[in-house]
Each structure stands twice: as structure tokens, then as C-alpha cells.
Design a protein around this nucleic acid. Structure first.
Lengths: 160, 160
DNA sequence: GCAATATATGTAGTTAACTACATATATTTG
DNA sequence: CAAATATATGTAGTTAACTACATATATTGC
């Protein structure tokens, strides 16, 4: 019962709650990779996984794919380049573009990571698959926000 | 249909997704307060609201109440002190403790904020009240994690 | 075909939480 | 009752995203 009651103050602090949960999961994620002896940071996942699937992409299209602002992607790419997991080359047709791809080392790493992913997927499914599934909830909220932003919705109530 | 399918890569990127959603909501939250002409940052909410309800608290007990690490609370308190929304005094019994409370200005501000909160609560309820309620999902996941951490759950699968 | 606009990338600085460490005071224990 | 331990607060530095601004190249429209 108690569990299902939503306190109004909780709604007001929702961004704080989301961030805290994110931090907590990320910290444990790092430890899981470490436990497998893999030198990998959870924040690298979206970039590497996308390159794993799509092979070559420009910085902006990669950013759009993973839903990041492009400077965030650039800074991740810098780290990954330092780790020699990715490399980049100029697009010969549109010279503004920098095309990014996995190195052999990057491909190797990703293939050794499959068993870790399985573990993470299972553990994540375990913690999120409660009555209200967190993953589905995030998807639903993002879709809802895409229709009409939080601010726009608030504005409707403000003018009453 | 599509909506309900959970992609495994989504599970691997869950911390990223949570953080992004948090950022997005926080940014709009700030704009909503601004639209009401109130100089207020969403991140101040947990501290101020708790002091509004409990009147006087020490730094650590306040941190526990809102679920923050104490240095986070200290830095928020610094900002709030600069804004003259809170003040602090030594505990006469246990002189290690610093007791924090709202100033008159702080109490005034919070009372003018009630209408804004109503708007935010309504708009938040609107975006979170989908099939899988985000607020309930967060509560459920936090409860689940309290029983057994993400890392501990992953370890179970690792040893198989 | 050049001027205006749009797109791609990059840099600098900000934010809001955190951990690790340091210090002061209280409490407990041998 | 003094030494050891625990608790309360504070400081310094880190993290992982962001926005705002700058620059270079491409595209569009007159």
C-alpha cells in the first residue's frame, strides 16, 4: 500500500531522484566491469555500441543516434581515441565531417564484453522489472515529453 | 506494441537514460519557476522543503532525510545562506552540530511557492502517469536496491 | 557565382551530484 | 579517566552531462 502512494514532494524532487538513481547504477556498473577484469566505463557504452552496429559515423549523426549534445560525444570520443578503441578520418565528400569507427582493439574489446553484458542485462532486468517497470516508464515519459514538453504542460496550468 | 519492447542495449545504458531525463526535467523546472517570477532553483527544493516541515535540523540529519551525501548538502546550504533563505546556529548541547533553519525570507518564499508547486505537481503527474508510472517505478527500484544492490545481484549471475 | 544561411566540429566554462580526506568534538571502554 | 572509537562538519577535487560561443565548410537562392 504505502509503496504505491506518491507524495507530492516526490514529484517536485523528481529530477533529483532520477539523478541519484543514475549515479548509483553507474557506480555499480563500473564495479561489475572491473570484476570481470575489463577496463571499461559505463558512459562509453552508447558510443561504442552504436559504432559496433553502424561501423562508421560522423560526430553529429552519432550524437543524434545516442541522444547526446555533440560536445558530450566529442569528449567521449577523445577518451576512446586515447584508449585506442576508436579512430577517425575525414569524409572525402564533405570535408567538414569527421568519420569515426572502431579500431581492431575496440572490436576485440566489445566482443569480449558480451558475457558481461548478459550479466548486466539480467541484473538490470531484475531491479527494473517491478510492478511499474522503470525502463518502460522512461521510454513512455520520453515519448510523452516529445509530444509536448514539461514546460509547455506547466504553462497550460499556469494560465488558469 | 513497439512501445513495450525493452531493448537490451537500453538496459545497458540505463544510467545514461536516467541522467538525461533528470537534466531535461530540471531545466524545464527552472524555467517554470522563472515564468512565475520566482528566483528559485529546483535543486534547492529538498533542503528547503525539509526545513519547512521540520523547522530545525543538523547538517547530517538533513542530509539523511533528503538522501544526499553531506558535502552536497553543505554546498546547497552555502548557496541558501548567501540568498539569506536559511541561517544556522551552534547546538548548545552537542557543539559539533550546526543547526539549520529557514529565515523569515525563506519562509516567505516557500509560502509564495505553493501555487508554483501545484502547477509543477500537475505537470509532473501528467508526464509520469503513463502505463508504467515513473515515480512509482523509482520508488520500487530504490526499495529493490535497498534489499540487495545492483552489484550483488550481478555477482550472482557471474558465478554461474 | 556570390552572399546569406545552414551544418559540422571544436573549445571553454558550468552544473550538481559524488568520494576521499581532514579536523574537531562526543562517547565508549578498559 | 585517559585512550580508542565514533560522529559531525568541512574542504578539495572529480565526474559526466550540459550551454554558449567560435570557426570552417557546404548549400541555397537571388
Amino acid at each position: 500500500m504505502e509503496q504505491n502512494v506518491i507524495d507530492a514532494s516526490g514529484l517536485l524532487a523528481i529530477s533529483t531522484r532520477l539523478q541519484r538513481l543514475s549515479d548509483q547504477i553507474r557506480r555499480d556498473g563500473l564495479l561489475i566491469y572491473k570484476a570481470f577484469g575489463i577496463d571499461f566505463q559505463p558512459k562509453w557504452f552508447p558510443v561504442l555500441y552504436t559504432l559496433y552496429q553502424k561501423s562508421t559515423m560522423s560526430v553529429v549523426s552519432l550524437s543524434e543516434e545516442i541522444g547526446y549534445a555533440h560536445p558530450s560525444t566529442i569528449s567521449l570520443l577523445k577518451e576512446l581515441e586515447k584508449e585506442k578503441l576508436i579512430r577517425s578520418k575525414k569524409d572525402k565528400v564533405d570535408t567538414r565531417k569527421r568519420l569515426v569507427e572502431l579500431t581492431e582493439k575496440g572490436k576485440m574489446l566489445l566482443s569480449t564484453m558480451e558475457p558481461v553484458w548478459e550479466v548486466i542485462i539480467k541484473a538490470t532486468a531484475e531491479i527494473t522489472n517491478t510492478e511499474n517497470n522503470l525502463m518502460k516508464a522512461i521510454n513512455e515519459v520520453e515519448a510523452t515529453l516529445q509530444e509536448k514538453s514539461f514546460l509547455q504542460r506547466a504553462e497550460v496550468y499556469m494560465n488558469k
